[in-house]
């Protein structure tokens, strides 16, 4: 049975007062399980950065409860909160390394803060191990300015894990958004490795669907300061139930110009039918031709996800037969389209 490590209950955050009041987060409820990679996805302005800052209370929620590892953070005094923060770490879009310190000194930083005593050079020893783990053993003496974006983020990750005992939660605030696709990939692989090998629970804030695709187990879709839907990544992908979810799964919308008399059907692939020629089979076996209006599918792992919009034939009997056929395919959801995502 999985165990909840982060629990957010009825969390609200309001900025400003009076007319300038902005409700950044409205009644957020989330349970994040120990050892999972949880994604929070939303477009900019959705409130996702505020939400992740409310988890370690860099931002104080206006109301609601945040419990991490059984400890209710929102009830803690400043001093105890600082101690609690040592059990979780954060990495940022802008890396936020200390520019006047070398990579090694940056990694030592949290260890200096906690004031733990040990034999001489223990911090450096631990920092070197972490440098090894993030794949930059030769960059110990480099200053941040001498490193590339991806390297800086690796140092930031090493720094985030340096605390002793090792943090159980890693919060990633748009950690890959400033990086190119190849570098993003390598950072995501590193996060996955940390999650698998060290058992660190990872919370990923992003606006990029592919980040969620790549590493998350579960995801919550945030829009307008509210969680629109949440669930397993494959479920949300194959069948987004809300407008917000569909907009993220199909970022380009379903740009369609159709004749009004055609009935449309949307196929959602939930990953079990990769490689089967559905449309061709329908045409060959039943003699019914469907027009593909739009398609946006992708392969995650070895399964394919995505949606396709088809125009049904004008003939009612053919249309009905086609629908029956499509609905019988395992792993595919077919529904008639009434509202297109623009």
């Amino acid at each position: 049975m999985s165990e909840t490590i982060i629990r957010i209950e009825h969390l609200c955050k309001t900025f400003g007062t009076g007319d300038g009041k902005v409700e950044a987060l409205k009644d957020i409820n989330l349970d994040i399980q120990k050892g999972e990679i949880f994604g929070i996805i939303g477009l900019s302005g959705a409130g996702k950065s505020t939400l992740v800052r409310c988890i370690n209370l860099l931002e104080r929620p206006t109301s609601g409860k945040v419990t991490v590892n059984g400890q209710e953070l929102t009830a803690l005094k400043e001093k105890d909160l600082r101690k609690a923060r040592r059990g979780m770490s954060m990495i940022f879009q802008g890396f936020n390394l200390l520019m006047q310190r070398t990579a090694l000194q940056n990694i030592c930083f949290p260890l200096e803060l906690s004031g733990l005593k040990g034999e001489k050079g223990w911090r450096e020893k631990r920092a070197k191990e972490l440098l090894e783990m993030v794949g930059l053993p030769d960059k110990a003496d480099a200053y941040p300015v001498q490193l590339s974006g991806g390297q800086k983020q690796r140092i930031a990750i090493a720094r985030a894990l340096a605390e002793y005992p090792q943090p159980q939660v890693l919060l990633c605030d748009e950690a890959t958004s400033a990086l190119d696709p190849t570098t993003t990939q390598s950072i995501l692989d590193l996060l996955k490795k940390i999650n698998r090998e060290l058992g660190v629970t990872v919370v990923v804030i992003t606006h990029e669907m592919r980040v969620v695709e790549q590493i998350c187990d579960r995801v919550a879709v945030l829009e307008g300061g509210e969680i629109q839907e949440q669930g397993d990544v494959s479920d949300i992908f194959s069948n987004p139930r809300t407008e917000a979810g569909r907009r993220l799964v199909m970022p380009n919308g379903e740009k369609i110009h159709v004749l009004p008399e055609n009935r449309l059907v949307r196929l959602a692939f939930n990953g079990t039918t990769s490689g089967e020629p559905i449309i061709a089979t329908l045409a060959a076996k039943q003699g019914i031709c469907l027009n593909i209006i739009s398609a946006d599918t992708r392969t995650i792992g070895d399964r394919s996800f995505g949606t396709m919009v088809l125009a049904l034939p004008e003939d009612e009997t053919d249309a009905a037969r086609a629908l029956i056929y499509l609905r019988e395919i395992p792993g595919v959801t077919a529904e008639e389209v009434t509202d297109l995502v623009q």
Binding site: L58, K79, R86, M88, S89, G94, N96, L97, L113
Partner: peptide
């Protein structure tokens, strides 16, 4: 950069 201060705070710096 405010972010660096935020990073230190997230690590529990006083």
């Amino acid at each position: 950069d405010q972010g660096v201060i935020e990073a230190a705070q997230s690590m529990g710096a006083s």
